[in-house]
């Protein structure tokens, strides 16, 4: 089977199970039917938007000072998925960003590298090359990012290709159309299939919360994605407004907590889009910490999807250390 002259389907991932045969879900049991999904999602508690926003706002008043702030900022750097997702991305741009991800502040060896560089599939080979040996992962968006409006075969081929080219992490988008049309089984099956197709890459599932029409759906979509095998759930593509917000992230954190309680499987989270300041980042970490606790305060369970955040973190770190307000001119821009 080919599509636009490219082989698609299962060919590049022969080592894996065919996409149509889903693995037994640890949460939903051996046979996943629309009915099973329906009853699973019916048990998801509703969310009161005003209450969730209040809680997020209350946590935003936490004041993190001095050494604690430095520790939080350092952690935030290590949690950054430095991202470029533009039509005009080039290999050259990727090389520059890779160097930024590996050594965010070339003048300061104490600054840790970012978690990953997040790019379009086309640029995965370049990113892999540029980051070899750096410890920084390569993340690739996939599944017809950002809309997800493509046939499953195309999505699988794209994800599998990116993984086979060395992407450590696949940031897939869910089929919001199917979700909103009530076809949750389709969403579930796609996630599961993509997870299989790109194994052993880490599967990050983008819910695109700004398109889901409310927090009840965000929570349901979170539970659905986790049941289908998501290693991370991610708020947004960054192409839709609103993208990540504190309240929507809180709702997802609470879903992760519930899923963990029910299944024992710890799923990570990645708020993405709109997080550009260190102050915002610290607020996310406070919320993470007070909702899921210490076990989630690690890049293996939390990422920021951001592009300009990194430099603001660096500026803040230097301000806390030196007591001098900083200028962007002293930090590298790529």
């Amino acid at each position: 089977m080919t599509f636009l002259g490219l082989p698609i389907g299962l060919a590049p991932m022969s080592a894996k199970a065919p996409a149509t045969v889903l693995p037994t879900s640890p949460v939903l049991g051996p046979s996943v039917t629309p009915k099973v999904i329906e009853s699973y999602l019916r048990a998801v508690p509703p969310v009161d938007e005003v209450g969730a926003a209040e809680r997020a706002a209350a946590l935003s008043t936490r004041s993190v000072k001095r050494e604690s702030k430095l520790a939080a900022l350092d952690l935030a750097v290590r949690m950054c998925d430095l991202t470029t997702l533009e039509g005009r991305d080039t290999p050259g741009k990727i090389v520059q960003l890779a160097s930024k991800a590996a050594r965010p502040d070339p003048t300061d060896p104490t600054i840790p590298p970012a978690a990953a560089l997040c790019v379009y599939p086309n640029l995965v080979p370049h990113a892999v090359r540029a980051l070899a040996g750096s410890g920084v992962g390569v993340a690739s968006v996939a599944t017809y990012f950002p809309s997800g409006q493509a046939p499953l075969e195309v999505k699988l081929a794209e994800a599998a290709w990116a993984a086979s080219e060395g992407a450590d992490e696949i940031d897939m988008v869910i089929d919001r159309g199917a979700f909103l049309a009530g076809d949750c089984l389709k969403v579930y099956e796609e996630i599961a299939a993509v997870g299989e197709a790109c194994r052993p890459a880490c599967l990050k599932v983008i819910l695109e919360t700004g398109e889901l029409g409310g927090f009840d759906n965000v929570r349901r979509a979170s539970m659905l994605a986790m049941a289908a095998g998501a290693d991370f759930i991610k708020t947004s593509t960054g192409k839709v407004s609103p993208a990540a917000t504190l309240p929507v992230t809180l709702v997802m954190l609470e879903a992760i907590r519930d899923f963990y309680a029910a299944s024992g499987r710890a799923v990570g989270i990645k708020p993405a889009g709109g997080i550009s300041t260190a102050k915002q980042a610290v607020r996310y970490l406070v919320m993470l910490s007070e909702t899921l606790g210490a076990a989630w305060l690690t890049p293996s369970r939390f990422r920021f999807g951001a592009s300009s955040l990194l430099n603001d973190l660096l500026m803040q770190i230097r301000w806390v250390r030196e007591g001098r307000y900083q200028s962007p001119d002293y930090f590298t821009e790529d």
């Binding site: 604690s68 970490l285 606790g293 210490a294 305060l297």
Partner: peptide
Amino acid sequence: YDQTSERTPARRGEVVPSGLDY
């Protein structure tokens, strides 16, 4: 927070400690 090892996450019903120090 614990930088190196992943702690055993809290179990259902167990108290989740706050990780970040203020």
